[in-house]
């Protein structure tokens, strides 16, 4: 129905409708068109300061030397010796662990499934309390030592940021409102899964916290977010765990880090029922099937369709569909019966 040539001349809103009906070719074209436009703008803006290099999924770690500038000095690259800087070594090891998890579990070749270089910037800014993905690479601050510390050393933070890159290439979920909350949700999901793998934990041992190792003793809370109990990780945590408490304000790109608590809780509940590995497969395949403007109801439709398919193929356990449906229903997201 829709080959590549047709997709190129079909307007985006029609591509989106076809993507919703499960047309993967249209979905891919829709995602690629937007990403190419973004990339072209980025390249034009950064032509003088940044090279665009094709890679093999190799890791490169740069020291920003506490300046607000990326790629100040390259200090470790794929296969290179460990340095005296623990932040550098941790960023190198953890980004490799994340890359290998996606490769070994889903056959994904680096962030873009095409061997994109994995670039980490550490020691960004002075007392910088943050980590971010900028569309091309990851950047980590040292924290101010009062509330936060070394973001580059935390496996869940690294996996979260790297997963933003993967989402960008698989679904390119728009970073605002519900699609943005789903974008955050997928990063927290894979941050959590990979943290448990890294620590060799099973779900009964896991704390289901995000960012517990980057908060200081003085910080008023135990972590940045909780998958198990959204809204309880710290004194500022306003994540809801049910649609009844959905945030509809404008802050935080219309609540991308806030409303992600709702699907996060559904993920946690699903893991309790069917285990984290089946959930990992279901969520990854769902991410592949989503599109830029997908909202929570689209997520529910797609995840149920994906889960049913995987269950029928024997790739996830019997009962997975019921478990996922129940989990989303518990957080206030239920299928609309026509």
């Amino acid at each position: 129905m829709c080959d590549k040539h047709h997709c190129l001349i079909i307007p985006p809103h029609i591509l989106e409708e076809l993507a919703k009906l499960g047309n993967t070719s249209c979905k891919k074209t829709l995602n690629d068109t937007h990403r190419i436009l973004q990339k072209r703008n980025g390249i034009l803006n950064n032509l003088l300061i940044r090279e665009v290099v094709e890679g093999d999924g190799d890791r490169f770690v740069y020291d920003c030397q506490n300046r607000n500038q990326q790629r100040v000095e390259m200090v470790r690259q794929e296969g290179g010796e460990a340095t005296d800087d623990e932040s550098v070594n941790k960023a190198y090891v953890t980004s490799g662990f994340v890359r290998d998890y996606f490769k070994n579990t889903f056959g994904l070749n680096s962030i873009d499934d095409n061997g994109l270089d994995i670039i980490s910037n550490v020691h960004y800014g002075k007392d910088y309390n943050n980590a971010f993905w900028d569309g091309d690479e990851m950047t980590y601050g040292d924290g101010d030592g009062k509330e936060f510390k070394d973001f580059a050393s935390a496996i869940d933070v690294v996996a979260h940021e790297l997963a933003h890159g993967i989402t960008q290439f698989l679904a390119n979920l728009e970073y605002q409102s519900q699609s943005g909350a789903l974008n955050e949700h997928f990063s927290d999901v894979f941050g959590t899964i990979i943290k448990q793998k890294y620590l060799n934990q099973d779900i009964s041992e896991a704390d289901w916290l995000i960012g517990d190792t980057v908060v200081t003793e003085e910080f008023p809370g135990v972590a940045i977010r909780s998958m198990k109990a959204p809204g309880t990780a710290n004194d500022f945590d306003s994540q809801p765990d049910h649609m009844d408490n959905y945030y509809s304000g404008n802050a935080d790109n219309q609540g991308v880090h806030i409303n992600s608590g709702i699907p996060n809780k559904a993920f946690y509940l699903s893991c309790l029922e069917i285990g984290i590995d089946d959930c990992a497969m279901i969520w990854f395949e769902t991410l592949k099937a989503l599109w830029r403007t997908a909202d929570f109801n689209d997520m529910l439709d797609v995840i149920l369709r994906v889960t049913e398919g995987l269950q029928n193929e024997g790739k996830v356990c019997d009962g997975a569909l019921q478990a996922v449906e129940n989990s989303f229903s518990t957080v206030g997201l239920s299928k609309v019966v026509a």
Partner: peptide, 12 residues
Amino acid sequence: PEASGEIHDGFI
């Protein structure tokens, strides 16, 4: 300000 690409988790 010039438009930036989509930064995820960046400060505003």
